[in-house]
Design a protein around this nucleic acid. Structure first.
Length: 489
RNA sequence: CGAGAUGUAGCUCAGCCGGUAGAGCACUCGCUUCGGGAGCGAGGAGUCGCACGUUCGAAUCGUGCCAUCUCGACCA
């Protein structure tokens, strides 16, 4: 059946489309444990590129990597009231080790604030020891009820930055700075535009003073929280006695921040760009930037074309503007598979550029380059092929961000909207709705109950509307804040 | 944790009126093919989710369990 080869389309069933795509593009597979997944090489390759990029960005902003234990004493989690309330329900607990019951159960980390700040307390004495700027790449476990590949699994991979500062303002600056780093990464590398802003009290991190987030719009017009940055105030410092002696000689509690992004971003990447043919991956994060598909009939053509394909591959590998071997390409010389089948194969897997090389191309000293995102084809001379490919990858990267931003704006509502219209919009195609909010948790909760939409964030200045909304979306009273409302993952 | 669905070959599923396990695709080998999912021939492949029961005999009937997926309450 030809239909078996096609994905369920986004229009038919967005959720089914996503699941099928992740499985068939071999990004991940279901593991034998409920709610857990195996990240396969195609998916892990994307994660590795995300890691490498972010890791460098963290180092460029002065952070150093470290590693803290997977197990956290249960009593640690309980030291910060809000924190334990938020995380206790979703923790995995180890009660036995080496065949014996443990004296104190160990929590498998859902996040590492407690254990990290307990150690910071040991290392920090003076204001001269501050700031402490650390990051760790780790796995964490949160016992979720309902899971989805990449978007929500019991165990996931992430990065958690943890810092300690001498003042509130310095911690706040760090919190905002790292949110900016996330935004730069998401837009510049993932080609995924985000709205940054502050979380409401009810949505903020358990134990934080303030939480900021990056919110991206998926193709079903739902929001995905793609990264968070928290100003933890002195909450954890007080819980773990993280104190320092200030310049004036007084003992003061340190100010902490934490910030993280996870493998969830891979899911966001998929839902931002991909189409009914499969994954569309922005070039900068693509493990494979291009694939060469040789085309031939006879044995004579075969040897001639394969030789040309190898030569092409080498010229890309050796292209002077990138370090040797840095152009990430593959020559798909598999025999017994027709070119068309190879096209579908690589389209499903999201390779940005396909280069078709046949006898006619060889004669003319050219090849056909096809862009994955637009399907646009061009015949390109082989003499300056490195330049041509490089240029196309850059343009494609930029175009993808522009397209995603246009899509988001098209589905954003910035005019006054009645609550009834809002409800039907959320039940229908969905949107990012910028509307007023009276500031009460009651209205926020009611809207969630009645429409399943939540305040994703109180957007930062640059995302706010030209005409500031004056009334609360639900109660109609005077608005104190402009809020971004949407259904979310 | 509530509701629904599904567990048979690597994948999608048929078989269910109990009586020796099937198809398509994929895979292996051979030949012919190759500018958008190739054709023919041969071949390999399954403790029918698990347990117990009914029966001369269970993929098929009964009971229980388990797992996964989807949808709801909680969340990066």
């Amino acid at each position: 059946m030809a239909d078996e080869k096609k994905l369920t389309t986004r229009a038919e069933d967005f959720s089914a489309w996503y699941n099928e795509l992740v499985l068939r593009a071999e990004l991940a597979d279901y593991a034998p444990v409920r709610g857990c997944m195996v990240i396969r090489p195609n998916g892990y390759g994307i994660w590795e590129r995300m890691q490498q990029t972010l890791d460098q960005m963290f180092k460029d902003t002065g952070h150093k990597n470290a590693y803290f234990p997977l197990f956290i004493p249960q009593s640690f989690l309980q030291k910060e009231a809000q924190h334990v309330e938020g995380f206790a329900p979703e923790t995995a607990v180890v009660t036995h080790g080496g065949g014996k019951e443990l004296e104190e159960p160990l929590i498998v980390r859902p996040t590492s604030e407690t254990i990290i700040y307990s150690m910071f307390a040991k290392w920090v004495q003076s204001y001269r020891d501050l700031p402490v700027l650390m990051n760790q790449w780790a796995n964490v476990v949160r016992w979720e009820m309902r899971t989805r590949l990449f978007l929500r699994t019991l165990e996931f991979l992430w990065q958690e930055g943890h810092t300690a500062h001498a003042s509130h303002d310095e911690a706040e600056e760090e919190t905002r700075k790292m949110l900016g780093v996330y935004r730069d990464f998401m837009e510049g590398w993932m080609a995924m535009p985000v709205v940054t802003g502050q979380k409401t009290e009810s949505e903020k991190f358990a134990g934080a003073l303030r939480t900021y987030s990056c919110e991206a719009m998926m193709q079903d017009n739902k929001a995905l929280q793609a990264g968070t940055s928290h100003n933890l105030g002195q909450n954890f410092a007080k819980a773990f006695d993280l104190k320092f002696q200030s310049e004036s000689g007084a003992m003061e509690y340190a100010w902490n921040t934490s910030w993280g992004v996870s493998t969830r971003m891979v899911g966001g990447l998929v839902m931002t760009h991909s189409d009914d043919k499969g994954l569309v991956c922005p070039p900068r994060l693509a493990p494979l930037e291009l694939v060469i598909v040789p085309i031939y009939r006879t044995d004579e053509e075969r040897s001639r074309v394969l030789e040309g394909a190898n030569r092409l591959k080498r010229s890309l590998d050796d292209w002077e503007r990138r370090a040797p071997g840095r152009m990430r390409g593959e020559n798909d010389a598999r025999d017994g598979m027709k070119p068309g089948a190879k096209y579908y194969h690589w389209e499903l897997r999201g390779v940005p550029l396909r280069m078709e090389l046949g006898p006619r191309d060889i004669e003319k000293g050219q090849c056909v380059i096809v862009r994955r995102d637009t399907g646009e084809k061009a015949s390109v001379n082989l003499l300056a092929i490195g330049e041509e490919v490089h240029e196309r990858l850059i343009v494609m990267q930029d175009d993808m961000l522009i397209a995603a931003r246009e899509r988001r704006e098209k589905h954003s509502v910035r005019h006054a909207i009645s609550y009834d219209d809002f409800k039907s919009l959320m039940d229908g195609e969905g949107a990012f709705v910028y509307a007023g909010w009276c500031g009460s948790a009651e209205c926020e909760a009611k809207v969630k109950e009645e429409t399943k939409a939540t305040i994703r964030c109180l957007p930062d200045e640059e995302f706010r509307s030209a005409d500031t909304p004056t009334k609360c979306l639900r109660c109609g009273k005077a608005s104190t804040e402009e809020a971004l409302w949407a259904r979310a993952y």
